[in-house]
Each structure stands twice: as C-alpha cells, then as structure tokens.
Amino acid sequence: MSSRIDELVAGLGRPSDDDITSEPSGVAGRQLLAAITAGQAPAQGRRGEEVPMPRGHRLRRPVVGAVAATAIAAAVLVGLSGRDSGPLRSYANAAVAIEAKGDAYEVRVKDAYADQREFGEAFAKLGLDVRLRIVPVSPGREREVVRMGSLHAPPDGGFPPGGLRGTSTIVMKCPPGQNACPIRVRLQGEMFRLQGADIVIGREARPGETYHDARPRQGDHPASLRLTGRTVSQGLAQLRRLGLTSAFTIGAFTPDGAGSHWDPPAGWRPAGDRRITGAWMRGATSVGLLVAPAGDDPRPRPVD
C-alpha cells in the first residue's frame, strides 16, 4: 500500500543539474520541498496524544519515506553550497592575520601575548604546517628570533638534509616613539606547507614569567649577582634580602659552556654548606642557582 508521500515523490520529475543550486531555486527543488512540507502531521488527541490509527494501518513506510526525502534535500543544499569556493587565501583571528600573496604568506602578529593555540589555528586554516611561538625573554632580546627550524628536524636542530627549503623575512622593529606595533613575518617556500617550520620570537616577560632563554651556566649572569662561590645558605639569605625567589639546578659546566644539568623536584634544597657554582636571572624576580652533583641528589628523570 503506497503512501501519500511516496506518491508525491514518485510523481516528481528527476531534476537536472541546472535545476539544482545551493538554494532551492530550481523547479524540481521547489516541488520537492513543497511536497515534503505539505505532508499532514498525525492527528492529536487530548493532552497532545496521537489518535490511534485503525488496526493494520502501516505507519513505518510513510515515516521512512519522509525522512529519506528530507535527507536528499538536505544533501543537495549542503553538498553544493561550498562548490567552487577554493582554498582560503586569508584568515585572521584575535592573535594573528595571514594573507596569501602569490607563493608567499604575509603574517601579522597582532597580539604577542595571545594563546599560542590561536597562532597554530590560523596557519592550519591556510594549510600551513607552521608553529609560531611568542615567548617571554630576558631584557634586550624582545622582538628577536629566538629560534627558527623545522618541526621535523633531527635532534641537533636545523633543517633535515635534502629537505624542502623556504625563506622568511621578519620585521620586528617598532618605529621611534611607538610602543605597540605588530610583528610582521613573510614566509615563502614549499617547506612551510609540506615540511613544517618552528618559529620562536621573543617578547617582553610579564611579572612572574620565566624567561624562555634562561639557561643554567657557570658563573654569575649578570655579574652583579655575585652569588658564585657562596654557600647555599649565604646565597639564599642574600636573595631574601633582595626580595627575589630562587630555583635550583644540578649540573656541571666547563668555562666554554659544555656540560649537562637536570632539574630536581620543585622545592628541593641542597645542604646549606654546599657551594653555588652558577647563578642567572630566570625571570624578573627569580634567580636560578647551580650546584655541582652530589651522591644523595635526586637523579635525572628518565626521558619518555
């Protein structure tokens, strides 16, 4: 037994490609939608209950037919709406704006303090495999390139041998008298789409942030700290008087900078009579202190 919906759908002519667009403007499309929307809803009884149909009346087929017809119409409307739209040539969010110009990409960093994920989101929208990080750095290194390499680089950094190449131009100087100005980056080459790039740029640190470029080393950095050679007790007392916090690192370095180090658990303190072998500013109000390894020190955590 056929239903009213089945008869309506069967009676419609097959729409041609010219009749179907992203909007239901074709003759066949309007007929189909009018037929679907003209179907009568089930009769309602008191308090919104459906009136029972006579025994043996088949309900399943008309419902399935209506759902199927609606699905076909939705597929046409959604499936054709994005045809011939082409790839994105520009994208912007609160953090960054990117525009494709030929085979190059102009990047304008609007908010250096934005969530790092917003930078990645923008590059991904244009099909670029680029990770841009804007990190807090020590005074004097703001608006400098801290690192540029490949996302898929070997352990020693740089670009993989024989890999795709690319060029970049980074303009970060502010005009005289202008405190806030965007960072501009121009990326050109296939590596930014296919091989990936990791770009790290410095910004001014906020209070309490750790400098990205802070590194454990031998001696005092700056020399005005004058903590190297003192005992741990003496060094901590001096930092307390200056209102500075501290964090310890265990390791040993030669004067030319070669060596190794590791971070003990947070809050760990060496014995007060041990000597400080290096000190450096790790933030605006925090100092890193280096001590040479001893037998009872916490061991380095294994690398995952």
Score class of each variant (00 low, 15 high):
Tyr91Ser: 00
Ala66Gln: 08
Glu50Arg: 14
Asp84Met: 05
Gly79Tyr: 02
Ser85Phe: 07
Val67Glu: 13
Arg47Met: 14
Ala71Asn: 10
Ala43Ile: 10
Arg89Gln: 09
Arg61Glu: 07
Ala92Met: 00
Ala73Gly: 02
Arg58Gly: 13
Ala41Pro: 10
Pro87Tyr: 03
Val51Lys: 11
Thr70Gly: 07
Ala97Thr: 04
Glu50Lys: 09
Leu77Cys: 04
Ser85Leu: 07
Arg46Lys: 14
Arg47Glu: 15
Val67His: 09
Gln40Asp: 14
Ala73Ile: 02
Val67Tyr: 08
Ala75Arg: 11
Ala41Met: 13
His57Gln: 15
Gln44Arg: 15
Leu88Pro: 05
Arg61Tyr: 00
Val67Asp: 10
Ala74Tyr: 11
Gly45Ile: 10
Val64Thr: 14
Arg55Met: 11
Ala73Phe: 03
Gln44His: 11
Ala71Pro: 01
Arg89Ser: 07
Ala71Tyr: 08
Val96Cys: 00
Gln44Val: 15
Gly82Met: 08
Ala71Val: 12
Gln40Ala: 15
Pro42Asp: 05
Gln40Phe: 00
Leu88Phe: 02
Gln44Trp: 01
Ala43Lys: 14
Ala74Arg: 13
Val63Met: 12
Glu49Lys: 14
Arg58Thr: 14
Arg55Val: 12
Arg55Cys: 00
Arg55Trp: 10
Ala69Gln: 00
Ala68His: 10
Arg61Thr: 10
Gly65Ser: 13
Val63Pro: 04
Arg47His: 15
Gly65Met: 04
Thr70Lys: 00
Arg46Trp: 13
Val67Phe: 08
Leu80Val: 01
Pro42Glu: 02
Ala97Asn: 05
Arg83Lys: 11
Pro62Thr: 02
Arg46Met: 12
Pro52Ser: 13
